[in-house]
Simulated assay, not measured.
Amino acid sequence: MAWAVFDGHCGWQLSNLLKTQLMPFVRRSLVDAGSANKDGVSEEAVHQALKNSFTTLDDALVKSATAIIESDLPFAEKARRLEPAYAGACALLTLFDPESRKLHVVSTGDCRAVLGQKSADGKWETTALSEDCTGATPSEVARVKAQFPDEPDIVQSGRIWGLQPSRTFGDGMWKWTATLKKNLRYHFNGLSLPSSSRYKNYKDGPYVTAEPLVTTTQIPPPQEGRPSFLILATDGLWDAMSSEQAVDLVGKWYDRQQKGASTAEPDKQAEDFGPVVLGWKKQCKYEERKATFRDDNAAVHLTRNALGGAHEEMVRGALAFRYPNSRDIRDDITVQVVFFGPVR
């Protein structure tokens, strides 16, 4: 079983492409790993196969730029084929084997996977299954600086030459040589990022990579009486709430579902939360006092509570803003919730 979320930047083209192209690369890489290991595939081999699938797909996108512009294709076709590599995308992929009950999490960028699990005393525990790969993550900062020791200004304000994710698909402007970027800029309307006027010490890179971080977690069988669930979400959700808050919200939602709607506690729909304020003074943030449990879908439940919860006017206001104005109050939010235990 497989679930994923994709978060595009500098355009939607690459995240749209990953929806259809990532899994075939993953499948092929895992098949190749199985063919090379007749006695069974080790966890280490699975991890390497997953890493290879990400980097192979990214190479096919980014390293094909020269071949595309030197081809005999019509100009319009060249411009269209270059679009995904100009854009970038964070990708979070999870693979679950129902037989072994192993959950593999493959992550590039700042999407996040979190496991919620009920403890023996009935409390919901939170386990991080991925690490945010950004210029603000200490381990990633150390990796990038070690890779480019002669470029002390490479990481500033949590960004790598202006780019927040440190591991991404695409983002060719952070991976191509200066010569290729100039050619694309002058002849194929390539992006001007990262700005040479702002980052004067920028060299050739590549400064970011599509090689993902991979983890494997054993999911307990449901008959042990410890239901569990997986939350996958883009950083828009995590800007508004912590991993622990998200698990608490879904855990309480789950418990209410098991009780049945007739025994659930009443919602706070009619409470007066004051006027709506959204802008530089106040962004979308989860507030426990505004928590609401009116949705039948757990992912919608999380999204609603990230945007204002029971304060309906705030939720409507947050959704009324469209890009680019929306960026001052919320990021795009994509959420999936997967339940491993029995659910009513």
Rank of each mutant, 00 (worst) to 15 (best):
A128Q: 14
T137E: 04
T134I: 01
D110I: 04
L92V: 10
S107C: 12
G122P: 03
E131Q: 06
G109I: 07
R101W: 14
K123W: 05
G135F: 01
G109V: 07
V106D: 07
D110V: 03
L93S: 07
S107V: 10
F96H: 14
V105P: 09
Y86D: 12
L93G: 08
D110N: 05
P98E: 03
C111D: 10
R143M: 01
P149G: 00
F148S: 00
T94G: 12
P98T: 04
R101C: 11
L115H: 15
V141W: 01
A128S: 13
Q147S: 03
C133W: 02
L129S: 15
L103F: 11
K123R: 07
R101Y: 10
P149C: 02
K102L: 09
L82C: 04
G122S: 02
T134R: 05
V141C: 03
E140P: 05
K123E: 07
A146P: 01
Q147K: 02
A87S: 10
F148A: 01
A142K: 08
C133Q: 09
P149N: 01
K102F: 08
A113M: 13
L93A: 06
E131P: 09
G109M: 10
L129H: 15
K123M: 12
C111P: 10
E125M: 14
Y86A: 15
D121R: 05
L103W: 09
L115T: 15
V144R: 03
L103V: 09
Q117G: 15
T108F: 12
P149T: 00
A87M: 10
L103P: 03
S100V: 00
G116E: 11
E140Q: 05
E125C: 10
E83C: 14
T127K: 15
F148N: 00
G116S: 12
